[in-house]
Design a protein around this nucleic acid. Structure first.
Length: 445
RNA sequence: GUCCCCAUCGUCUAGCCCGGUUAGGACACCACCCUUUCACGGUGAGAACCGGGGUUCGAAUCCCCGUGGGGACGCCA
């Protein structure tokens, strides 16, 4: 059997859709699984709707997802050019073959293809036998001289020696047009594999451009991990059948195969996507996490605003990695580490007040602070236990007001971790701020 | 309307091809544990074979018919 050649053939007419991403992914996986070639071809025959800006979106999205192409724009290959707008000569030559065989005619300035009208039967690698009969001749060259999708798609698949056409089910009904053309050219038919569609998570129909989570650039912007998105996407319509979900890409490549792809459509689920993303974030080493988190924070303007020292930022991120579910939550979750002007949460304040005398505890805490050992969370814990014991209090009598004074809220990483990272200077300053603001209002009641 | 495809927990799915399972896993939800908090993590609970006919000793699994869902019917791709 000849080596596998698959292609992803997007049209630069819009943003990069999650369904397109999965089609690209399945093609890429099949190429990598079989040791074949993954071709990128740009179907830009519709001049009205194409733009270089969209072209760039395709390149960026594929690269971000890690779906490198072996042949195509920017990388070249033996079957170029890889943009249909540059292949007019090839289409002319193939059109002549059809015309010479008497399979074309003109009407109203457009060139029509004369179908055979015979039942078209394909043995789809995913669907099995599918039969459909094409009933009408169809346009292959528009009256403005530009070739139509069905024509260029088939011509290029022939010219580029594509062996497997892996595409969305929305093309299944078009396939009879395509097989008619393959036969008219006397070309061998590729193996077809029609993958299920991704349905929108709420409401009827397939996922459309306007749906939440439909665009790859959205995930990019929101700081999702591309590996997590790829992992999630391959589980939409395919399964390794062994209950594995989070898998390294090498494992996915090893296990992926066409017959295991489902026939039914799959509904998108942002919660499961978010969970996968979290799993990848939590599995990172502190260095890896720092790299992606710092990059994300840079993009949001957080870094420009607070200008943190690298070592301090590193400590904060190491402390918060397991506490935060996505990079998006980061700015809100770690803001108080970098400013003295963080707000006090009213509800948390109420809770603190109701539980005891936070000002008295924090005054004691402040007085004892110079004797605290900041070398580790454990040494701080020992120190606080000593303080609590000497005052006849429990550590939580200090922890809750302390957390509030340090962060303005009641949730966050371990208290001793926060104390260690912010250090004695900030800790003292924040307690004095708390006493200054909250002391008078408390005694007034 | 015509044609094509599909059908297991709310969702993603395993099991189906080669009939015999307490129908398994994950997300979500709920409870408990862990914990100074919030998460994470752990344990547990609830939750499905679309309906009807066949075939068979026996059907989620094979066949047919309904129903439901999806897609295609452009001088878009």
């Amino acid at each position: 059997m000849s080596p596998v050649r698959v292609r992803f053939a997007p049209s630069p007419t819009g943003f990069f859709h999650i369904g397109s991403a999965r089609t690209a992914l399945f093609n890429w996986l099949y190429a990598r699984h079989t040791g074949g070639t993954f071709v990128l071809r740009i179907e830009d025959t519709d001049k009205e709707r194409n733009s270089d800006e969209f072209l760039q979106v395709i390149y960026d999205s594929l690269r971000w997802l890690g779906l490198n192409w072996d042949e195509g724009p920017l990388v070249g290959g033996g079957f170029g050019p890889y943009r249909q707008s540059e292949r007019a000569d090839i289409y002319r030559a193939y059109l002549d073959k059809l015309s010479d065989a008497g399979r074309t005619y003109e009407r109203e300035g457009a060139t029509f293809f004369r179908i055979s009208g015979k039942p078209q039967i394909i043995d789809d690698a995913i669907r099995g036998r599918v039969e459909r009969t094409e009933e009408k001749d169809f346009v292959i060259i528009r009256s403005d001289g530009n070739p139509v999708f069905h024509f260029v798609n088939v011509v290029d698949d022939i010219a580029m020696k594509i062996t497997h056409v892996i595409r969305g089910e929305d093309h299944l009904s078009n396939t009879s047009k395509h097989t008619e053309l393959f036969q008219a050219f006397g070309a061998p038919m590729p193996v077809y594999a029609h993958i299920p569609l991704i349905l929108k998570q709420h409401g009827p129909g397939k996922m459309s451009k306007r749906d939440q989570g439909a665009l790859i650039e959205e995930y990019q912007r929101r700081g999702f991990q591309p590996e997590a998105l790829v992992n999630f996407l391959c589980l939409l319509g395919w399964s390794p059948k062994n209950d594995q979900e989070k898998m390294p890409i090498e494992e996915i490549i090893r296990l992926f195969d066409l017959p295991a792809v489902h026939q039914g459509n799959a509904r998108f689920d942002e919660k499961k996507m978010a969970h996968m993303n979290m799993a990848y974030l939590h599995a990172m080493t502190p260095d890896q996490y720092y790299a992606v988190a710092a990059k994300y924070l840079g993009g949001t303007g957080f870094l420009a605003l607070h200008r943190p020292e690298e070592e301090y930022l590193r400590s904060v991120l190491a402390l918060c990695q397991v506490k935060v579910r996505s990079l998006e939550e980061l700015p809100a979750a770690i803001g108080y580490f970098f400013t003295e002007d963080f707000p006090y949460d009213a509800k948390s304040a109420e809770k603190i007040r109701s539980k005891g005398d936070p000002c008295a505890r924090l005054q004691e805490f402040l007085d004892a602070l110079t004797s605290a050992d900041f070398s580790s969370d454990a040494s701080l814990e020992t120190w606080l236990q000593g303080l609590a014991a000497s005052k006849g209090m429990s550590t939580s009598d200090y922890i809750h007001p302390g957390r509030f004074a340090f962060s303005g809220g009641s949730a966050g990483p371990t208290f001793y971790g926060v104390l260690r990272v912010i250090g004695p200077e900030r800790a003292g300053r924040r307690i004095r701020r708390f006493l200054g603001i909250m002391g008078p209002s408390l005694s007034a009641q």
